[in-house]
Write a protein that binds this DNA or RNA. Structure first.
Lengths: 241, 241
DNA sequence: GCGTGCCTGCGACATTTTGCGACAAAACCG
DNA sequence: CGGTTTTGTCGCAAAATGTCGCAGGCACGC
């Protein structure tokens, strides 16, 4: 999904389709469009779709009918667009099992954030929590006490980590050697909603490096994979993998 | 659960679903809805649900049947909604293992309070087994005499604790190593309802730290988990876990 | 009943952690 | 080499936490 997910936008208003489509494409998401149920089904038949954005207020086959259709015939996640006041629609939509909804008028950025959040959840890394507990992890002279959230540098000095820094470090250690995208790191550290322009992972990596890996030219611990994310490059003793 | 718990509301009356859903969402709880058993099961299949609110008076698969289904197929906590006079249903419901019930007409605020209470309980902890009694707990040089509620510092000097401080300390010792949310700590120390802006736990932690763990930078006993709560990080001898 | 002292919760303010915009620096692309 | 994309990092503001002082409540002794 980090690649380029495909989203099918179903809405009878051309201007909305265009707006959404353009915005999503500008942010690395492939879009397919449909103005109603017939086109939607053809698109689904002809293309590999990762997620459907569905306006619930449409003539003909209305949105709820299509939502039910999607539920019954596919496994696709669905995000509904509902008119501001149509609480009822929203509620029915949630009953039908939509994964999220957005009320119109909506902020495209908000839509993108929801899309990414839903897709991230679908492609999350297998967690591997249990084996870590009760261990000390060692790498390049450093020691991380997993129970105490306590980090010790090669000279034995304790270095305090904030919660987010600790989680990020642990995510790296649990997946040492693997290239982790920002989305994956976001998932591993919180599962929080990622904004389109969320640079918080970069910030935390920066803060971690300042404490642990100050030579930016030749990182010994966290390597930047240009266009891909970050990678833990030091050997880790005591890790499960 | 501190995150944003998801509650599935199962009721055949749209107005009730509507009311409950809106109220809960306004207070930071995600809601999913179902008008009956079929939708309920689909929602459970498709989403991560933390708790189910179930109307017991429904046509078709009636509420008791669904409650039994939930008991047998899930570990989810259940709160029942019952009509005022249906004492029988209520009793049967509790016998079936519902975690709480509310009689209609109910106050949404009351429902929210019950939901929070049940979730707190559910997300916590092997309930305190009696074995603590009659023991002395030791950690980092300190000793807590559980029977006498008496604390002794590493030099053998007795340190007096107020009731709340003692309970808080015991809660930590009984769940050493675990991250405890403020809600959970509230439960463990009093079972009292946690207000949104209740900072009393923070205060008690602060007071405990002043007596026992004065170096805020490098706590040896109680660590703050930002956005999560507190965690006892010292080894405890004599504890059950 | 009345004062005294301790416990407790709350408001208020200080401090820390986080996330985000902005812009500089680096990497990539021809 | 210039132009574009991606990343590094700074500063700021919002959110969460730490902590102080105060006031109400309660127990106790007079």
């Amino acid at each position: 999904m980090s690649e380029s997910p495909t989203v099918l936008v179903v809405d009878d208003h051309r201007d909305i389709r265009d707006l959404v489509s353009r915005y999503l494409q500008e942010h690395g998401i492939r879009t397919l469009l449909a103005e109603g149920g017939v086109t939607m089904k053809r698109q689904l038949r002809d293309h590999a779709v990762d997620l459907v954005v569905l306006d619930i207020m449409m003539p003909g086959d209305d949105g709820l009918t299509l939502c039910r259709y999607l539920r019954e015939h596919t496994e696709l996640p669905v995000i509904l667009l509902t008119a501001m006041s149509e609480e009822t629609d929203r509620i029915i939509g949630l009953e039908m099992g939509a994964d999220d909804y957005l009320t119109k008028p909506f902020n495209p950025r908000e839509l993108l954030a929801r899309i990414k959040a839903v897709l991230r959840r679908a492609s999350a890394l297998p967690p591997q929590r249990a084996p870590m507990a009760g261990r000390n992890l060692r790498f390049d002279g450093w020691t991380l006490d997993v129970d105490r959230h306590q980090l010790t540098d090669p000279e034995g000095v304790e270095v305090s980590l904030s919660t987010a820094e600790y989680r990020l470090l642990l995510a790296f250690l649990e997946h040492a050697g693997r290239v982790l995208s920002r989305d994956q790191l976001m998932d591993l550290t919180r599962g929080r909603e990622a904004d389109a322009f969320d640079r918080s992972i970069d910030n935390h990596v920066s803060r971690l490096r300042r404490k642990m890996d100050p030579d930016a030219r030749h990182p010994r611990l966290i390597k930047t994979i240009w266009g891909g994310g970050y990678q833990w490059i030091a050997d880790v003793e005591g890790a499960a993998e």
